[in-house]
């Protein structure tokens, strides 16, 4: 299971990376915005995308739209981990095809629950 973590703040990437490691996901890569992430994703090999929303260059929502528009990536599970907390935004992310939405600040338990839920749904 290879996971790409996209966030413009390296501390947040590191926190998520550590939490994922505790959950048993040790194979992770990092990107600091959508522009960097997209070519990595298109390069293939990723099974899961964890992305922030508010980033310079390409935002998380724009990245999500790109992913859903790409034939090879459109089924990639995407979890949004973000400080964006407006109802409109959550609805927009859901409409764009996000698989899970976690608002910052979050706990390890919440991240675990959302990730497990996403995989449950995929497996079923």
């Amino acid at each position: 299971m290879k996971i790409l973590i996209v966030d413009d703040f390296s501390t947040m990437r590191r926190i998520i990376k550590n939490l994922l490691r505790d959950l048993g996901f040790t194979n992770t890569d990092e990107a600091d915005d959508g522009k960097t992430a997209l070519p990595m994703l298109k390069g293939g090999g990723y099974d899961f995308l964890v992305t922030d929303w508010n980033m310079p260059g390409m935002s998380g929502l724009e990245l999500l739209n790109e992913v859903r528009a790409d034939d090879n990536l459109k089924t990639l599970p995407v979890l949004m981990v973000t400080a964006e907390a407006k109802r409109d935004q959550i609805v927009a992310a859901a409409q764009a095809g996000v698989n899970g939405y976690v608002v910052k600040p979050f706990t390890a338990a919440v991240l675990k629950e959302k990730i497990e839920k996403i995989f449950e749904r995929i497996d079923s």
Binding site: S59, G60, T82, A85, K86, Y101, V103
Partner: peptide, 26 residues
């Protein structure tokens, strides 16, 4: 409408209708 660009953390989320106040709301 929600634009592609994010807005960052929302302040006083508890007092606002258009903002969720936590993961449970989401």
């Amino acid at each position: 409408k929600a634009s592609g660009k994010g807005e960052g953390p929302q302040l006083n989320a508890e007092e606002r209708e258009d903002v969720v106040s936590g993961q449970d709301d989401v």
